[in-house]
Design a protein around this nucleic acid. Structure first.
Ligand code: ZN
Ligand code: ZN
Ligand code: ZN
Ligand code: ZN
Lengths: 141, 141
DNA sequence: GACTTATTGTGAATGATTCTCAGCCTCATC
DNA sequence: GATGAGGCTGAGAATCATTCACAATAAGTC
């Protein structure tokens, strides 16, 4: 449980990372954000980017998904429970309100499980990206 | 697109990995399987374990989930679409038949997306593991 | 302004997964 | 049953994302 303590002070880097995340639409990785900040002339150390993205996630101000062995972050105002419809090509994302999730709890207790969390991510290609492209399209459903 | 070609020949290592995976209950990583085989006196190279797990997945004979930046595999006979209820502590897993997934397609087209795949994993602790333990229990829902 | 301490950034460390490639083994063929 | 071509193996190097360590720096406090 080496759960590291979250950063909390109001620093320049903190707001920089926070705003950069809000400006992005769709999910981005810490690395991408780091490079972007560098290119924009407001560089922030890679570790610091990681630190703040992680802190924002802890605070519920961002949500994250794990794809292709990489962690993607996205600003997230709503405190409500929701899932994402993510474009595999450009990273654009839409929030989804799932309907019933009751069957889920039912299934859990039915099997003697105590629920901790669940994760639902839907991948596809947005209208724009369907237009161009012509590459691969595996289906791991 | 550096999609590597899958192994297909009938070799000793192939069946060894395949059977080891079937013997395990719950999800396991390539590393765990590799170590287990080594301990059991039927060592198989790490690369080879990775190759076969990946091949089995392509063939639909195994399914995989990504947790904590690590890939977990599990033998999977049923060709049907399904999801998993996974114990975060011991890795035990139960297959779930989700009810309606229609809203999902609806939501996709509604947003101009072409669906490719979706991923639903439910995490919790099984009866056994709820009994002991007393550690952390975050809820990223 | 001086002080206490959290935060930063660089570079090294980690860990999982993939790649490389020479030698080995399968399998179709004879 | 022997042969040959090409697929399979495995040890170690190479990648890649992420985490760590720690000395230098800047926030918040009085
Ligand atoms: Zn949900
Ligand atoms: Zn797109
Ligand atoms: Zn489903
Ligand atoms: Zn368990």
């Amino acid at each position: 449980m080496p759960q590291q303590k979250s950063v909390t002070r109001g620093t320049l880097q903190r707001s920089t990372v926070q705003r950069a995340l809000q400006r992005s639409d769709g999910f981005v990785t810490a690395q991408q954000l780091h490079r972007r900040l560098h290119d924009e002339g407001t560089p922030v150390g890679l570790s610091t980017v990681y630190r703040h993205l992680s802190a924002l996630t802890d605070l519920g101000r961002a949500d994250t998904i794990l794809v292709h062995s990489a962690q993607y972050y996205r600003a997230c105002e709503t405190g409500r429970h929701h899932h994402h419809l993510v474009c595999e090509v450009c990273g654009k994302a839409v929030e989804l309100d799932p309907p019933d999730e009751a069957w889920l709890r039912a299934a859990a207790t039915e099997n003697g499980f105590t629920l901790v969390r669940h994760l639902l991510e839907v991948f596809g290609r947005c209208a724009d990206c369907t237009a161009d492209s012509g590459g691969d399209a595996r289906d791991t459903t």
